[in-house]
Design a protein around this nucleic acid. Structure first.
Lengths: 218, 218
DNA sequence: GTCAATAATTTTGTATACAAGGCTGACGTT
DNA sequence: AACGTCAGCCTTGTATACAAAATTATTGAC
C-alpha cells in the first residue's frame, strides 16, 4: 500500500506539535510549511485537514490552522474517558480473553517487573503499553479496541510525565497484578474497577503535576 | 462562523450515502461528482477526506474513494460500544446531574409517553434523542458527551429500524423509567446497568432484524 | 494625537493545468 | 485457446494560477 505525500506530512506535523516545536495557539502558515516540506500547498492542506479531524489542529475558515493543545480541563476529561474505556475493555475481556492472551499479559507483566528492577523507564513504558493493548484487543470488539488505542495514543505525551512520581512504578505494578487476577478469574466488575482505578490514578497524578507546575510559575 | 464549500459537500455526500443513493463498495468518481456539485475537484477531495476520517468512505491511494458501510459484525461491535458508552455517561451523571436536568429528563419522558399513546414514532424518536442527549451532557464530561453523540449519530440510520418491533416502544419506556429512577437516586451502578441494557437491547433487536432479512434473501 | 476609513498586502479557498500510476484491451507467443 | 506483455487511456495526486476575504498599513479628518 503506497502512501500519499500528505500522510507523511501529517505524521511529521504531528511529531512537531508533540515535541513542542509548535505550541498551543500557533498559526500554521501554509506557504511557509509547504516550502519547508518542499511540497505545494495542496498536499499540505490535506495534511492539515487530517490533523483537524484528529483534534490536534483547529481549522478556522478564512483564518487559518491553529495548534490546539487540550487545556487542563479537557485533559482531565480525556483521562476520565480513558479510565472508563479501559474499564469497559476489561469488563468485556473478562469473559472473552483467551488463555494465550492471559499468558501474554503475564509475560508483559514480568518484563515490566524486570524493567522496574533495572530502573529502565523506557522498557517499562514499552511493556506497559503492550499490557494495555492486549486488554484492548481481548475485549473481542475491534471497534472498541481501535477507539481505545486512538485515545491512548493521544494521551501518550501526557501520560509519560507522571511516571516520574516516586514509587509510582511499584504501585502501578501492584495494580497490574490485580487486573490480571480479575481477568483470569473472569470477574467482570472486578476487572472493570481495577482498570478504571489504575488509569484514573494516572489522571490524578497528572492533575497534581499540573498544579505544581502552575504554582511554580507564579 | 462561515462555512467552507467542502463542508456542505461533505454533508450532502453523507446524506446520499445514508439514503442509499450510494451503497457499499461504490466508487465515488471525483470528476463526475465535482461536475454534479458544480465545483472543482479540490474542494470535493477535501470533502472525501472528511468522510474517510469519519469512517464512511475508504480512501485507497491511487485507486479512489469507496463507500464503506459497516458490515453486520462491525455494527454489532458499534452497538456494544454505544451501550457501554451510555453506561459510562449514566455512571458519571448519577453523581453529577443537576435538578434542572432531572426535570428535563422527566419532561422528555412524558413527551415520549404521549408520542407512544398517539402512535407518533417521529415524535417519540425526537424526544428519545433528547432524553439520551441530556444524559450525555450531564455526565459532566464534555469530551465524553461529544464522543457519545458522535457514535449516536453514526448509528442513527440503523437504530431507527428496530423501533418497528411490536411492543418495543412500551418496553423502551419502562427502561427509561428505571434509568430515571437510578439517576435521581444517584446510584452509579444501577444507572450504568440500566443504560447498558437499554441500549444493548437495541443491538440485539437489530441483530434479529438482520437475521430475518438475511433469511428472507435466501 | 487619535480615530476612522480606505487602500495595499497577505493569506485562504477554488479552479485549472500537469505529472504519474493503475486499468483495459489488443496483440503476440506458446 | 490461454496466458503474458505492452501500449493507450483514464484516474488520482500535485503544482500552479486566480479569486475572494481578512489583516495590516496609510492617509485624512477632527
Amino acid at each position: 500500500m503506497t502512501k500519499r505525500r500528505a500522510d507523511n506530512i501529517a505524521e511529521q506535523l504531528e511529531e512537531l506539535i508533540f515535541d513542542g516545536t509548535f505550541s498551543d495557539g500557533d498559526r500554521l502558515d501554509e506557504v511557509r510549511l509547504s516550502e519547508q516540506f518542499g511540497v505545494s500547498r495542496t498536499p499540505l492542506r490535506e495534511a492539515l485537514q487530517r490533523l483537524a479531524l484528529s483534534g490536534l489542529v483547529e481549522l478556522i475558515p478564512r483564518r487559518g490552522a491553529f495548534v490546539r493543545q487540550p487545556g487542563p480541563i479537557e485533559l482531565m476529561e480525556m483521562f476520565e474517558v480513558m479510565a472508563e474505556m479501559e474499564a469497559v475493555c476489561g469488563r468485556l475481556a473478562a469473559l472473552r480473553i483467551s488463555d494465550q492472551a492471559l499468558e501474554d499479559l503475564r509475560d508483559a507483566n514480568t518484563k515490566c517487573h524486570d524493567a522496574v528492577d533495572g530502573s529502565n523507564p523506557d522498557a517499562y513504558y514499552h511493556e506497559n503499553e503492550r499490557f494495555h493493548r492486549i486488554i484492548y484487543e481481548e475485549s473481542g470488539n475491534s471497534f472498541l479496541a481501535q477507539e481505545a488505542y486512538k485515545l491512548h495514543k493521544r494521551l501518550k505525551p501526557f501520560r509519560r510525565q507522571q511516571l516520574r512520581f516516586r514509587g509510582r512504578l511499584q504501585q502501578s505494578m501492584g495494580e497490574h497484578e490485580a487486573i490480571l487476577q480479575a481477568l483470569s478469574d473472569g470477574c467482570q466488575d472486578a476487572a472493570a474497577n481495577a482498570l478504571r482505578d489504575h488509569v484514573a490514578v494516572q489522571g490524578e497524578k497528572f492533575q497534581r503535576l499540573m498544579a505544581t507546575l502552575k504554582a511554580a510559575a507564579e
